[in-house]
Design a protein around this nucleic acid. Sequence first.
RNA 1: GCGGAAGUAGCUCACCUGGUAGAGCGACAGCUUCCCAAGCUGUAGGUAGCGGGUUCGAGUCCCGUCUUCCGCUCCA
Length: 486
Amino acid sequence: MANETNNFSEIIAHCKEYGYIFPSSEIYDGLSAVYDYGQNGVQLKKNIRDYWWKSMTQLHENIVGIDAAIFMHPLTWKASGHIDNFSDPMIDNKDSNKRYRVDHLIESYADKLAHEGRKEEEYALLKRMDELLSKDDFTGLRNLIEDNNITCAVSETCNWTDIRQFNLMFDTQLGTISGEADKIYLRPETAQGIFVNFLNVQKTGRMRIPFGIAQTGKAFRNEIVARQFIFRMREFEQMEMQFFVRPGTELQWYEYWKEARLKWHESLGIPVEKLRYHNHVKLAHYANAAVDIEYEFPFGFKELEGIHSRTDFDLKQHGELSKKKLQYFDNDLKEDGEPYGNYIPYVVETSVGLDRLFLTVISMSYAEEKWTKEDGSEDSRVVLRIPAKIAPYKLAILPLVKKDGLPEIAKQLMNECKESFYTFYEEKDSIGKRYRRMDAIGTPFCVTIDHRTKDDNTVTIRYRDTMLQERIPLSDVRKVVMEKIS
RNA sequence: GCGGAAGUAGCUCACCUGGUAGAGCGACAGCUUCCCAAGCUGUAGGUAGCGGGUUCGAGUCCCGUCUUCCGCUCCA
C-alpha cells in the first residue's frame, strides 16, 4: 500500500472534485486568491475550528472567547500601526523585474555610503527619504533614487518603474456617501478586536491575570502575491488567542505557549516530523519575541501559526489614542508584601490560520495508493486519511443491497446515530464502489448491513485507513464510533 | 509584478496542416452481481475561458483580456 504521492495540483483538484474547496465565483472565471468551502470543506473547517475553540476555552478556565465585529473604528488601525507601518511604497526594476520596498532600497544604498565613510551623505539621504515618505511623495522618492543613481543589485541598472503604494488593508465606506471621512477598513487581523475589548471582558468576566481572550474570525489582507491555493488568501480566517500577563513574565508565558501550541498540533494528528519552529530574527514593531510553527506543505515548510510576545504595545497604543486607561489592578502580593498594583498587561499571542490548518490536514491526509490484489490484478484508491475526530462524515451506513429490508435497517441505524455524529447513507452501486467514494471524502468508518444482519443483528464495520473489516453487533455501532471519534 | 505552461462535458483528454464537437471515467434512472472501483440498458450534460480580428467558414491562425499551475520576486 505504498506509492503515496503528494502532488499539490492533485490535492487541489481533489478538493474541488469532492466538495471541499471551490474557486470563488467560478462561473465568472473566479476571483484571484479567493476560495469557497464546499459541503465537505465547511464541515472539516468547522470541526477544526471547534477543536481549537474547545481546547482554548473549555479546557482553560482562564481563557474566554469573544466575537468582535469585522468593522472597527478607524483609529484602531492607527493605534495598531497598520496604517503607518504596513503600507509600503514599492518600486520595480524594469530590467531585472525585481521588486523592492522603496525604503529598503534607499537604506541599503545608505549603508553603502556609510561603509565608504560618507557619513554626511548617508545622513542627508535618509533624512530626505523620511521627509518624502511621511508626505507620500512618490515622485520625490523616485527622483531621489534616480538622482543618487541607486541601482538594482541584479541588473545593476537604474531603470525603475513608478513607485506604487502597496496597501495592506482593504477599505470601504461606512456612510451612504463615500468620502475620506467615512473610510473604514476591513480588519487585517482579529487581534485588535480583542485588545479594544480588553477592559470589557476583564471587568465583566472578573478575569484575573494571567488570562486569555480567544477569537476566531475572518480577516482581510491585500497580498502582494496571493497564491498557493488557500495558503495565502485575501480573505481568510484566523484563530487567535491573546494571553494577558504580568510584565516581566511574558517570556515565560511565551515559552509556555510555544510548547503548548506545538503539542496541540500534534494532538490534532499532524505528524511531528512535518512540524518545526522557525524563530523570527527580524521582529515586528510590536514584538519582543516571535516564533512560527511551520508545517511541511507540498511546497515546502511554511508558517502555520505564529506565537508572538507583543509586549504592552497594543494596549498602550489603544490607551493613548482612546484616552482610556487600559490597565489592570493586580492584588497579588509581591515578595515585599505589597500588591503589584496598576499596570498595563503584557500580551502573548497565539495566532493560527484556520485555512492553513485546513490545508495542512488535507495535505497530510491525501494519499494515492496502489496495490496488487490476491488474484494478481492491480487496484488503487485515493484516500483522505483525515483524523476521525475532525472528518466531515464519521460514518457511512450502507445496505449491501437495496432490497430485502436492508435499507430499512440501515435507515433505522442512521436515525439512531445522527443525533451523535454526521452519517452518510448510500445504497447505490456496488459495495466496493461505495467504499471508494467514502475513502475519497475521508469518511473513517463504514458499516454494511447484509442478510446476516437480519439473522443475528451484526454488521460489518470497515475501517478507512486499513481497509480491514470486522463484525460487530448492530446495537454497538453508535457506541463504537463515538469511542473512536472522541 | 516578471518569465514559462495551460484553459474543449463534473473529471482526464482527443479533434493531426481551419470545414458548424467526440471518447473514457463520473453523474442520474433502471436491471444484475453482492463485502472493497471500472457488468448491462437508457438519460442528461459543451454556443471549446471571455472579447475582438483574419477568413466564404475558427476549438483550430492572429491580437487583447481573464483565470489557474510552475519558477522568480515579495511578505506583517
